[in-house]
Computed example of a mutant assay.
Amino acid sequence: MLRVAGRGLDEFETTALLVPEPANRHDPNAVAVVVQHEIVGYLPRNDAVRYRALLGHLNTSGFVARVPCRIWGGTVTDHDYDRNGNLALTERFRASVTIALGEPHLCLPMNTAPQVPHVVLPQGGAIQVGGEEHHLAEIKPLLRPEGESYAYATLHEVSDSSGRAVKQLVEVRLDGNRVGQLTPKMSGELLAAIRHLDDIGYVAAARAKLKGNHLKAEVTLYCARAHELPHDWPGPLGHALPEVQTVQQVEEPPNVEGSSPAGPTAGGFHTPIPPKPTRIRFVVPPGWPPAPEGWEPPPGWLPDPSWPKAPDNWNFWVAE
Rank of each mutant, 00 (worst) to 15 (best):
P261I: 03
V318S: 07
E218R: 15
L18W: 05
E189C: 15
P297M: 01
P44S: 10
P303V: 02
G6T: 00
P242I: 02
P253T: 00
V4E: 06
P184Q: 05
V31Y: 04
E252Y: 09
E133P: 03
V158T: 12
K185W: 11
P274I: 00
P104L: 02
N313Y: 12
G294N: 00
E218G: 13
A165H: 15
V256G: 06
I71D: 01
L143R: 04
G8D: 07
V256C: 11
K185H: 14
H26R: 13
P299A: 09
R92T: 10
N29R: 12
P117Q: 06
E243V: 09
D175N: 15
R144A: 11
V120R: 10
K216L: 12
Q245M: 10
E228K: 06
Y152D: 01
N313W: 08
P20A: 07
G300A: 07
E146Y: 03
A266R: 12
V116D: 01
V170D: 04
V284M: 00
D312S: 15
K140I: 15
P230S: 09
P236F: 02
T14A: 05
P145Q: 04
M1R: 11
P104Q: 03
K276S: 12
Y51Q: 01
H231V: 14
V203Q: 09
H105Y: 11
D312V: 12
L136M: 05
V35A: 01
T154E: 04
P277Q: 00
E133Y: 12
G62E: 05
A151Y: 01
P230W: 04
A204I: 03
L182M: 02
G268V: 00
H134R: 15
L17S: 09
A224N: 02
T15Q: 14
S260F: 05
R7S: 12
V64C: 09
E132T: 15
P311Y: 01
S187T: 08
K167E: 15
S162R: 15
D10I: 07
Y222T: 09
L89R: 12
Q181H: 14
P289N: 03
V179I: 13
I200F: 08
A151Q: 02
N84I: 06
A5T: 10
R279W: 07
H105D: 07
G130W: 10
P305W: 04
P298S: 08
D78T: 15
L229G: 07
H214S: 15
H196G: 12
G41V: 07
L229C: 10
E148F: 05
H227W: 11
R52M: 01
K209F: 13
S162E: 10
V19D: 06
V247T: 13
E146L: 06
P303W: 01
G6V: 00
L182E: 00
R94Y: 04
L9W: 13
A224H: 04
P292F: 04
